[in-house]
Amino acid sequence: MTLAPTRPTWPAPLALLLGPDASELLGVTLGGYGGRLTALRVVTVGVQPGGATVVQYAADVQRADGTTTRETLAATTGSRIPQGAAVLAGRGVEVGVWRWPQDPALPALATAAHPGRLAVALHALGIPRETPPHVKVRAYRPGRRAVLELTGGGPRLFLKIVRPDAVQGLRERHDLLAPHVPVPRPLATTPDGMLVLPEAAGTPVRTLLSRGTPPPPPTALAAVLDALPPALLELPARRTHLQRVRHFADVLTHTAVGADDERAELDALTARLADVDGGAHPSVPVHGDFYESQLLASSGRITGLLDVDTAGRGHRIDEWATLLAHLSVLALHGSPAARGYGAQVLAHAEQRFPRAQLRPRIAAAVLGLATGPFRVQQEGWREHTQERQRLATRWARG
């Protein structure tokens, strides 16, 4: 079965995993479990410029007893193949494959996704539940991380599943931040990569915008950023969006940008951003991925700050640029509230940073977001990609 109309410009691993041969590869894997693949749909696609690819699928699988189940499958190539994955070959490309929740890079996932085993594990951690919890998947990036929500049998909890070598550092970030900003303090961790978190108070700012509820003023956002502890300066700095422009452009070239005129526009934007004078900015503590979905609020105050994996050393101007990029993309897709809020935040930010240094950073962040429609296989992804690329160009022009 063909999953998508492949393009001749796609790298071989991408063309394989999105084309008809993917069904045969995955069917071989399921055959080992006594299942037969009857339908396959691409859910997410991650591509690195070097060709490494990871694809998540939703699969309909017919069992020996005639019943059909919906399962999540993953296939990876190149450097994205984790140790422990079953490796097959197709058209000269090695492919690592697995079924949810047996992600070889996330060993804690098999326990976390099974209510009975999870209840036993939580009891051993001193977090007993009256009954096995209901487990809802909130996010899954194959080979990288998962977020699960637990309800029933006790208070609502969230599990963050990461690679085992990352869990201690993530806990330390939470413990470091919790006394200063509204970051949930972990209840427990496990050596195989599970972090147990309490529910944070408040409503996501993105939800407030969708409801037409007034979001917190920019001064409330600034107060949270100002409260980030100086100890974050001891942690590594992440590459900024401006520093990653070439990476974003390469991903787009490999995936969503095909026509000559589209490539010419992308090349022009990349060249413009490469020539930007970003200015000198002091290193300060940063969240690292500061935007409306990471912020919970109530009564005009920020009450929760999520996903602190990226917290460390950086530049404050990039925090505002990231938020403004996300708000401008929301506005692009028809959110008047996001447009109005973005105007407030922009006015606040441009009182603090030169327009000529802020707006190219917003453009670079929007260019990163332009990789999103293809990654999540959004309907009409080509048109949505071009809309975001044109938005990035407008920001770059000031």
Rank of each mutant, 00 (worst) to 15 (best):
A201H: 14
D260E: 15
R313D: 06
V97T: 07
G258W: 09
A249Q: 09
T371A: 09
T219L: 13
T385C: 00
R272M: 09
D175K: 02
G51R: 05
F374P: 06
A64P: 06
L391T: 11
A64I: 03
T44P: 01
L369T: 01
D250S: 10
P101H: 03
G152Q: 10
L195P: 09
A392P: 10
A188T: 00
R246S: 14
L305G: 09
H315D: 12
L327V: 10
K136V: 09
H333Q: 14
V276E: 15
T385A: 07
L148F: 04
D260R: 11
Q378T: 09
V147E: 09
P373E: 03
Q377W: 10
A337I: 06
R339I: 06
A370F: 07
P184S: 11
D307Y: 10
R91P: 00
A89H: 02
L157F: 02
T255P: 06
P82G: 01
A223Y: 09
E149K: 04
A22N: 11
V183W: 08
A249F: 07
L106H: 04
K136R: 15
G169N: 06
Q83A: 14
G27L: 01
E319G: 13
D307A: 14
G27Q: 10
G300K: 01
L16H: 00
T322K: 15
L252Q: 08
L176T: 10
S335M: 04
H281C: 11
I317W: 03
S210I: 05
D318H: 07
L17D: 06
A75N: 05
A188Q: 05
R375I: 00
K160I: 04
P182Q: 03
P191Y: 05
A166K: 12
L296S: 02
G92W: 07
G50S: 07
T44C: 08
A231T: 03
I161C: 08
T67L: 12
G193L: 04
I127F: 05
Q294N: 09
